[in-house]
Design a protein around this nucleic acid. Sequence first.
DNA 1: AAAACGGGGGA
DNA 2: TCCCCAGTTTT
Length: 351
Amino acid sequence: MKDFGREILAWYEIHGRDLPWRKTTDPYKIWLSEIILQQTRIKQGLSYYHNFTEKYPDVSSLARAPEEEVLKCWQGLGYYTRARNLHHTARIIANDQQYTFPDNYKDLLNLKGIGEYTAAAIASIAFDEPRAVVDGNVIRVLSRIFGIKKSFDKPEGKKIFISKANDLISKKEPGKFNQAIMDFGSIYCVPANPDCNHCIFKNDCYAFRNDQVDKLPVRSPKIKIRKRYFHYLVFNWNDPEQKTLLKKRNERDIWMNLYDFPLIETENTMKWKDLITHPEFKKLTKGLIFNLRQSSPLYKHQLTHQQIHARFFMLDITALPNRKNYHKTKKSDISKYPVSRMIEKFLQDYP
DNA sequence: AAAACGGGGGA
DNA sequence: TCCCCAGTTTT
């Protein structure tokens, strides 16, 4: 290959996407876009980017916002740690550094939520630092064209990919180069059935020449999925005058800092008859007179590493208990709280 | 070094 | 269904 950088940049000039964060050099907006796009498709993240930039046009406005409001804006995007870190980091930048934004790879790397990829992306795009990004797209493009068979998950493979990308990067237009190779990977060198016969690299591509396109990149063995069984207690759902109880999820677990209902988690699904004998259930309903009005079908919610089986039990009770860490809430106010997609689905099904 | 962390969409 | 997505943090 003569000059990979020149070729990919030429391709990018013609085929590169027109995206809102490419019209700005504001590091805050570049940062925001990169966080939103972590493990997230552009199509899915686009509306969130617009909402955020409108509501929080700069670091200080984001820093001033309450965390709960930021989480609410993030609702539905997943990986909620991203939102908490984004907000946390905005406060650090706004407070400690007199509103200046870290302007190089090393300093960016120190911030919460910014790892190797994002630091390289911001440094190259906003500050022209020649620092190659390596994401899923880059891994695919490099492994195929240059025949890299090491898995990126292993330290050895990771070093190879990062070093190769840094060898190739344009020193003159590092940001453009990075976006070019990612665009090429996501538009052209796609995971399944890429159109290799018309590819600009067909004569040089190792995978194409050796019929290895569907073998590269090498995938790591897939993880096993934990099954969990949630039983939610939804108090006074059918009585508009009465409030219900919400709980903020605090433990180190999925959906941290989002809200859901009082929850009994077990190793298996439990019928109502058995659930009422569960110690957690007794604790939650201690001193209450309750009546099961309705129970939902089983909700199956698939996460990357977990499969949640959830059932909602709608209970009538005479008086709402005072429980530590539980919030009394009017039904109509629940929409103000950030919730997981699963809870959102339940709220739609049982308005 | 490995596990945890969401949700959507394409094939 | 399976795979992948502009990855990072915690254990």
